[in-house]
């Protein structure tokens, strides 16, 4: 074929580029890619290896046995310690060492998160209007206003005395 030299050169460039791409691509595909599906297989292990932050109340009871017993006997037994305090990892690190004290939030807003009267809450769930319950509007409530009568670990009033004894 005459007069086709420039086509051959362009063709070589294109084919060379394609081979170069295939060659480079070979090294850029992660080795575990496609192992289980169209994704990088080792990502599963990476996802699993992320550290757990919340331990659940069972973790708390390993050290705070008394509080846990008291808590478990009352209506707040279903509430996780970490809901009102903080995540376990803030208190105890990965090696089981103490990091810092758990925060204690005495604000009525914390209690009202669950017990503020809202039409959207299931009827039958204990809810209060602060005006009816304490004679004050929500912003007027001082820290500890709820705790004056209720123990947050075991809130029903008849058990209050026992609770205080247990709790110290």
């Amino acid at each position: 074929m005459k007069h086709t030299k420039h086509y051959w050169r362009a063709g070589f460039l294109l084919v060379g580029g394609l081979i170069g791409f295939i060659f480079v691509r070979h090294f850029l595909v992660p080795t575990s890619f496609g192992q289980f599906g169209f994704y990088r297989g080792t990502n599963l292990a990476e996802q699993q290896a992320k550290s757990v932050v919340h331990g659940g109340k069972e973790s708390c009871s390993t050290c705070h046995e008394d509080v846990a017993k008291n808590h478990a006997a009352g209506s707040h037994a279903v509430v996780q310690c970490e809901n009102c305090h903080a995540a376990l990892s803030k208190h105890i690190n990965k090696d089981g060492e103490f990091v810092e004290l758990m925060p204690i939030d005495r604000s009525p807003q914390l209690c009202l998160r669950c017990h503020r009267s809202l039409p959207s809450r299931p009827t039958g769930f204990p809810q209060i209007e602060t005006k009816e319950h304490l004679g004050l509007d929500e912003p007027e409530l001082q820290a500890g206003a709820c705790l004056a009568c209720h123990n947050s670990h075991r809130p029903s009033l008849e058990k209050k005395k026992v609770k205080y004894e247990n709790n110290g």
Binding site: K2, H3, T4, K5, H6, Y7, R9, A10, L13
Partner: peptide, 19 residues
Amino acid sequence: LALGVYDTSPEALEKDHKV
């Protein structure tokens, strides 16, 4: 840019035109 090929004969240009 010419890839070192200087072939501008009428035949080559005709071929280019078709391509």
